[in-house]
Amino acid sequence: MKVIAIPEYCLGCALCEIYCAAEHDGYQGQVLKAFKKGQPEPRSLLLVNGPVSRLNTCRHCDDAPCLHGCISGAIKRDEEGIIHIDEQRCVLCYTCVMLCPYGHVHPSARSGRIIKCDLCRDSEGLPACVRHCPNGALKLCSGREEV
């Protein structure tokens, strides 16, 4: 399972980033609370280069370099195949960062802690970015489907 970004449909509005941040760290999707009072940290970042933009999502790779590489055993795969981080165990060595082909798993610009997409595994329904993209530029797919 993974979220696929379709650059042709992406307008670069960054709502995906906003709703991603609000879905995590206990904000429960409350955008105002996260952005007015909190410390929002989006797990996936929008890559904007001139007119081209796309959300840089995690592929939850089969042969995941970040998982092989994590020096503390903090990166795990759950039963659904979702690659996620046990933050209690992370020692901030950044080995996963230098291994991810997509540059997806990254240090938060705000706190330096390591964050990545967990497909909103702690909430119900579709991942927040997919749910909130107004342009249909994000799609949850399973299997080897690519766009």
């Binding site: 399972m1 840089n56 939850h60 042969d63 082909p101 997509y102 540059g103 080897r144």
Partner: peptide
């Protein structure tokens, strides 16, 4: 910066099967 990584890189990466997805 990540957004300035040469485009060829991302194109080639799409072709590399091994990371696939499940």
């Amino acid at each position: 910066a990540l957004k300035h990584i040469p485009l060829t890189y991302w194109q080639e990466l799409r072709r590399i099967e091994s990371y696939g997805s499940n």
